[in-house]
Design a protein around this nucleic acid. Structure first.
Lengths: 331, 331
DNA sequence: CTGAAAGCGCTAACAC
DNA sequence: GTGTTAGCGCTTTCAG
């Protein structure tokens, strides 16, 4: 391994002069600078990030925890985070938890050991213990997508109540009255908010009978829930899935059972993943700007790192209804 | 920040005793061990990974470069890599390049600075400069999915020739004779192999006229290529996309133009991403065990780390044809 | 401008 | 068994 010492020796200067050149700082004569640069080139020197981090107490690494990398919504978020991070010279340790709380806890610990300069957290649930662990960590923090009530943590999210309201109102305006809501994990604020939006729209149409089944945001849970609904002979003329994956899962089961979409049952999802525009019929959905959410979250982290202040900003992005074949507009 | 020094002081022992306890090593009396453990608990001490890495020259971090996190094939690979990594106490720095060579180069450099203990690389192309940079890096290396001819690098991949051969033969056995092949980036070994498999099958059926258009593995390129094919009034009765995303893109355009699948044109993809089983019609495809590939690659890396030897093993996994509605079996 | 030297938190000889 | 100490590679005072 080539160290700064080797560079200094080769260039015939002291270590500190070499350091100044390496870090592009002023106070070195052109002559020596050139010599050092030449030595670096010749030896193919790369500064040792570990040593730098140890000394400067800045690792230039960010930690990102996501619940499910297989859900196409999250890769987009990751891409946004990464783009912003790389741009500002940070790299990313990825922690995919597959929704498991132990893994989540483990990554949180790991991030502390790895001395990440900031953590972007998309919790898999509202599990108090992990949230508490997270709060205790001193590095800058941002939460994406899931409001952690009352923590004052900087957050980037869309207005889930409005999004779900838009979706439900659309179905109601289409004349549907028995709307089955497939919820996400119940303890997530985002899930609760989408439920609230659903209820709010029902309320406006004078409906108070709700129709709710619980999923967990996976494709399989969407299928499972729909199979259950059919077996129980639930009566419904529309389905609103709390995310596209579940809505897509429900659609598959519906089709298998020769139930026509949208004639017999209209379907709406949430997220606008690529495949919601590819299914047959294409899926009406509520768009969330995933890439942008990741990007903004990272900027929020970076701002905290640079300002050395904890922010408690909440960046609320607007969801947008995208009407497609699974529930064509009738009004 | 709590350091080992604080722990030692609190426990009333020396630093080295504390270190022994922290690292779970023998040679400490039960009495002192308990004291140290108590101190750790009380102070909520976490070892500083930077310092450890600097001293031990092991960062316990792996670097992973993927070309496109939005292609659902890669999240599965990532998940496999991550599962294996976490299991053995490693974390993962993710580098998504969006197919850009500069980003690829940047991540390679970054990994060296970050002192990753190993690199798993899925190159976006056969770009020599980056490959050379990669080869120069001293850490253990593994390549996934893309054979780098003649480098002797340990590799995990499926047999792309066979996979493509299987797909093409299936279409031929179904009676199709004018099969349009939508290739991946031409300079990728994997792409070339899939092309070879396509040619091989054609050859066996005494066909030598090929029908090839170039895509870049993205959904949009699949659409673009198919639009072009239709505009040029190309005559074909089947499409074989070098990955599912492009095949799906082609299907969308086909449908838009009222061309019936599979009646008018049969379609086959490659990868078996989740959504190939959700499209209408569902997409025949060649399965690649993405998760397993990631997992195996990580194990290969880990073995190199532990054995301190460079391996040059090539783990070849078998692809499998999955026949679905877009080209139902007729033979 | 340039160089000597202290020390970041930790591990691992090496003494006792 | 336990403690002392020398670095790992780097940045950063502080003298000169």
């Amino acid at each position: 391994m080539v160290t700064i010492k080797d560079v200094a020796k080769k260039a015939g200067v002291s270590i500190s002069t070499a350091s100044l050149v390496i870090n592009n700082k002023a106070g070195v004569s052109e002559r020596l600078r050139a010599k050092v640069l030449a030595a670096i080139e010749e030896l193919d020197y790369r500064p040792n990030g570990m040593a730098r981090a140890l000394k400067s107490k800045k690792s230039k690494v960010l930690g990102l925890i996501i619940p499910d990398i297989v859900n196409p919504f999250f890769p987009l978020v990751v891409r946004g985070v990464e783009a912003a991070a790389l741009r500002y010279g940070y790299s990313l340790i990825l922690g995919n938890t597959d929704g498991k709380l132990e893994e989540e806890a483990r990554y949180l610990e790991l991030f502390v050991e790895k001395c990440v300069d900031g953590i972007i957290f998309i919790p898999a649930s509202n599990f108090k213990k992990n949230i508490r662990t997270f709060l205790r960590i001193e590095s800058p923090k941002v939460v994406i997508d899931r409001a952690l009530e009352g923590t004052g943590l900087p957050t980037v999210m869309t207005d889930n109540i409005t999004g779900a309201y838009l979706a439900t109102r659309h179905l109601l305006a289409n004349g549907r009255r028995r709307i089955l809501f497939i919820s996400g994990p119940q303890d997530l604020q985002a899930s609760q908010d989408r439920y609230k939006g659903y209820k709010k729209a029902l309320g406006e149409f004078g409906l108070d009978e709700e129709l709710v089944l619980n999923g967990d945001y996976t494709f399989d849970s969407g299928k499972r829930v729909m199979e259950q609904a059919l077996k129980e002979k639930l009566c419904f003329d529309a389905v609103f899935g709390a995310n596209d994956l579940m809505a897509l899962g429900a659609m598959v089961v519906l089709s298998e059972n020769k139930i026509k979409i949208p004639e017999d049952v209209e379907v709406v999802g949430y997220d606008n993943i690529l495949f919601s525009s590819l299914s047959k019929p294409t899926l009406t959905t509520v768009e969330q700007p995933a890439y942008q959410m990741g990007y903004e979250a990272t900027r929020l982290i970076l701002r905290q790192i640079y300002s050395k202040k904890e922010l408690s900003e909440c960046k609320l992005l607007e969801p947008k209804l995208i009407v497609r074949e699974s529930s064509p507009q009738q009004y």
